[in-house]
Amino acid sequence: MAIKNLRVTVEEVRGFCDMPMRPGDYFELRSGALVFPQGGRFCMWAMQSVMPFLPARQRATDDPNDWVPRVERFICPDPDGGVVMKIEVIDDDGSVTAAPGTSALSSAKAAVPLANAKRLVADPLKCTGCRACELVCSYTHFKEYLPHQAHIQIVTDDEACTDTPMTCHQCGHAKCLAACQFGAISRHESGGILIDTQACTGCGACAAACPFTAMKLRNGKASVCDLCLGKPACIERCPTGALSLRSLKGKGE
């Protein structure tokens, strides 16, 4: 009995994946080896949810009581992510066909929060390190120019000649939001994080919780990217188009 080769492809992202995984991302199982497309990557958590089924799906079985061959879609265990993966069989001629299955995930899409949320994505190879984004961010939020208080910060390395924009990741499972005990942090429908400066006590728990050092304290209050409520000024000002908004559910917009 021949062992089948399989491909696992992200079919849909219903929620707010932090990786982020995007529709079309895939990996393959060829014999006993995992194979990734060049430069490809795959979320470990999403992958581990599908892994136990793969050895079984590689083998034909005619037992009518075995449900494994008929399951073709899996969903990542992160409830905010909603990453749906599909298993397909790679035929001997290289073509891919869906395994004989029937399942379609039935959870209502509308039930997933943040349907329109977006994330600010930076391309370090386009970033010139000019920091115009920092300046326009400072101006837009505070009507003054001081890049150190901007919500986006460029980290330059003059030895390697690299420039890396650092900004809020608009995490689906935002640690800052969870860390705030005073209800001062909420999320705008754009995906941006909002601070209620009245409620904020400046305790700094959110800044300590942020894994990306994007949350800062300014004048004793939490301060972070609000995505300019959907139209980030930094994207408009960037001279090389290094910044963009990506939908969390699919490719860029």
Partner: peptide
């Protein structure tokens, strides 16, 4: 050339890595 770099606040980043 790999990419451009620019001075602070530059619209025509003309330095080349």
């Amino acid at each position: 050339k790999v990419k451009n770099r620019g001075c602070f606040s530059c619209t025509v980043p003309c330095s080349r890595v």
